[in-house]
Nucleic acid binder design. Structure first.
Lengths: 336, 336
DNA sequence: TTGAAAGCGCTAACAG
DNA sequence: CTGTTAGCGCTTTCAA
């Protein structure tokens, strides 16, 4: 049997109330008994039950993390940084990969509520609105990373996606590209829309429009990215550059180019987004827009914990600036 | 306030015991009241508190997963498959990235015990023996994926690492390579030792020894893999092939080769291990030994849940066969 | 400075 | 078939 607070109380010859107080550092206890109790807890290797204390209304010290897919390097990296900060603060993470499936989101939210998690961090797309509302009702703090729902009262940490798209496009335009195609993820996501909007803005600013400047919507995977890039590159007005709204899609484009025997960057420039592990590994290394993942993970966790501890006034929306990482997948368009 | 079993009981005009029984499907309840209670639970959107029921000795429906690093694609993929199976069975996963740091392992194990998780799945290296023993004492089921501790009573699912190493080496030998270097991860891990042993066995079997057949131990990362590969490739007896004990190290080798302007596979053949997402993305695509990750994740989860439910007799050690995936990073050694 | 006791939400005998 | 009741391990008044 696990040792309980009763065992400690008995061994120390005090009441469980006293033990509870020394555990939590509440009330006034004589240094004498405090030390004795502490010693005994050591000896008996006593660890208070989070379950029991949670039942009395205290924290469970666990946070739920909703992401589309843990096997996607971007989200794995986010999860890792969130987890790390959580550990530092004494909180664990329960992972929920939703595949952007609202049904699954709902299921996970139900689980998390039943387990009385202290808060939920969301990095997944089309969030089940009903589920979210039920969280608000039960006063479970919610925070977003990587995305945001403006109409919702919640903390959030994300990157300025518009600026990211703008920067990517400006880079290409600066190199002389005039036919730039965009491959984007689900346009229902605000992040996608913003990236595309930023890109368009740069194009218009430079007085470029129409022509090869298509926008294609794709599912976020290497395979789909490749498929769509192939379409683009074999179409009549094949672009000289592709801006892919995430690294996975960009890599798909790289593979498509190779299949068509186009050399990157000479025959085709490609810009990605996210700067995941993958961007440095493909050949050629990808020019990409970097999200400060480690920092973002850390910050959401900080925000939500402050919320949990009730040491926060209003909600905060933190918007960080993305950075363009120029590697070797972009250059001047070849004069044809 | 969240609705509790009392609210339901009151609304239905029955006792909480009755409600409890219909929730759990225990005891005999008239179809009439059962239906009435179910309806009311629906209406009031009642979800039983896992915390409370856990306190009475029932499951918490959460499993801990200890891995070295969630940001490493291999482990992210494992985590994803474990998570998926867990969801199907009604269990959540709490993620613990240990960086192979025994101290951190210990901390996580303590957390998990306090939260009364139903079981722990371990995929991390040099596991804190003391911590593991304490789990045994508290009868918390433990299962290993990807590795195993033979001296411990526990379920495990892994790949035959010896066979994997053997296959990788045989492939290279079959192509005509005689100078094969090995870059391995921490040799304290049984998996590493076995892979190397399998490789050596193939070498000896083919009557090859000494020469360029060095074994270098490295930290598992692209950078370190690259560093060690550079050393190898600039040494006197530069090998014609490298067997890297995981894809990360293999990719490091790829980068090293490129830096030295060696073309793969013509100047240097490289074989990896794990067949992660990365293997298909590097250029050239990596010949690698594949672990059936999805299946392994599913199986450990199944094993540990059986254990949790007490529907298991003894422990099981499942050993799967790895498969060599031949892509484009290997070929005949160039005649010099 | 310490302890008795009520209660958190639910389960599981045991009675009726 | 249904209800009473005693916990599960801990927190928190309120007294002493």
């Amino acid at each position: 049997m696990k040792t309980t607070i009763y065992d400690i109380a008995k061994a120390a010859g005090v009441s469980i109330a006293t033990v509870s107080k020394v555990i939590n550092g509440t009330g006034r206890i004589s240094t004498d008994t405090r030390e004795r109790i502490n010693e005994i807890m050591q000896e008996l290797d006593y660890q208070p039950s989070v379950v029991a204390s949670a039942l009395t209304g205290k924290s469970t010290f666990t946070i739920g993390l909703l992401i589309p897919d843990l096997a996607n390097p971007l989200y794995a990296e986010i999860a890792r940084s969130v987890e790390d900060r959580g550990r530092e603060l004494g909180f664990n993470l329960v992972m929920c990969s939703t595949d952007n499936n609202p049904r699954r989101e709902g299921d996970y939210i139900t689980f998390l509520k039943q387990k009385k998690v202290d808060g939920i961090i969301i990095s997944t797309g089309i969030s089940n609105e009903a589920g979210l509302k039920s969280l608000n009702l039960q006063r479970i703090p919610v925070a977003f990373v990587t995305r945001d729902i403006p109409t919702l009262e919640a903390d959030s940490v994300r990157v300025d996606d518009f600026a990211g798209g703008y920067r990517a496009a400006s880079h290409l335009i600066g190199l002389g590209h005039r036919h730039i195609a965009v491959v984007t993820e689900d346009m229902n996501l605000q992040a996608s829309r913003e990236r595309v909007r930023g890109c368009r803005f740069a194009l218009e600013e430079a007085g470029i429009e129409g022509g090869g400047n298509t926008v294609i919507e794709s599912v976020s995977s290497v395979e789909e990215g490749k498929r769509h890039a192939l379409e683009l590159l074999t179409s009549e007005h094949s672009p000289t550059a592709i801006f892919a709204c995430n690294d996975l899609l960009a890599i798909g484009a790289v593979q498509a180019a190779k299949e068509l025997r186009l050399t990157i960057p000479w025959d085709l420039s490609i810009v990605g987004f996210d700067n995941t592990l993958l961007a440095g590994i493909v050949d050629p290394p990808l020019t990409t827009v970097s999200q400060p993942i480690a920092q973002m993970g850390r910050q959401v966790m900080d925000l939500i914990i402050q919320e949990v501890r009730g040491q926060k006034h209003g909600k905060q929306r933190i918007v960080l600036t993305p950075e363009l990482i120029v590697r070797q997948s972009t250059t001047f368009p070849r004069k044809v």
